[in-house]
């Protein structure tokens, strides 16, 4: 564990807290992609199945349970409690392609062919593109609430900090080598490129995030 990784994890937790705040404070999930949240639940469940067979640390185990349960709770809020506010007509990204992309790469790039390894690899590739329905939704509506833009920013920051953590670990830990994690993580961070730019620009003007449509 190093400071970059810790800050990355905290940024991930903050993003989820912001999303919950947004939904509960406004009693609405307008502007939030149900498809992205669903993909994140699939990511967490497929990756953290190892919870029952591998013990790394109490920290890791607690985080795994926290990620699965909070994302399930968000889906519950979106799917049942505030369903009437869900903006279905703008959430039109075809996630079949993303699942097919992740599944294809999961069969080609795992460390070895065991169920847990293939699922872990699948989750890495799926996570790398899971934000696309959300970004697409933002792109078509052009604007979003402040909390929503903070949420997406914190989520992007998380993987960017992980990338710094990988560079740090590679230079300090002999034998540390995770090519699939690195490539998927860099792809994930790169997808936020445009968003980061407009987010920082809107912060500097002290205005709401506005994207060109």
């Amino acid at each position: 564990m190093n400071l970059f990784r810790l800050c990355g994890d905290l940024s991930h937790v903050v993003s989820i807290v912001l999303l919950l705040l947004k939904i509960r404070a406004t009693r609405s999930c307008v502007g939030i992609s149900l498809k992205t949240q669903f993909l994140y639940l699939v990511v967490f469940v497929t990756r953290y199945l190892d919870l029952f067979v591998t013990f790394i640390s109490l920290y890791n185990s607690v985080m795994k349970v926290a990620f699965i349960s909070t994302t399930a709770y968000i889906l519950y809020l979106m799917f049942f409690k505030f369903k009437h506010t869900y903006d279905k007509d703008h959430d039109t990204f075809r996630i079949q392609f993303l699942i097919a992309f992740a599944a294809a790469l999961a069969f080609v790039t795992p460390h070895r062919y065991s169920l847990l390894e293939v699922l872990w690899t699948f989750s890495l590739w799926l996570e790398s593109v899971a934000i696309l329905p959300q970004l697409y939704m933002l792109q078509t509506t052009g604007e979003c609430e402040n909390l929503t833009s903070h949420y997406i920013f914190a989520l992007g920051l998380y993987r960017a900090l992980y990338a710094v953590n990988w560079v740090y670990r590679y230079s300090t830990e002999p034998g540390y080598w995770q090519p699939v994690t690195w490539i998927a993580g860099i792809l994930q961070t790169a997808l936020y490129g445009d968003f980061f730019y407009y987010y920082v620009a809107s912060r500097r003007r002290g205005k709401r995030l506005k994207l060109p449509t």
Binding site: T54, I56, N60, H111, W177
Partner: peptide, 10 residues
């Protein structure tokens, strides 16, 4: 080179 295991990141 094979990847280092087990997965200790989240």
């Amino acid at each position: 080179r094979t990847a280092s295991r087990p997965h200790d990141e989240l």
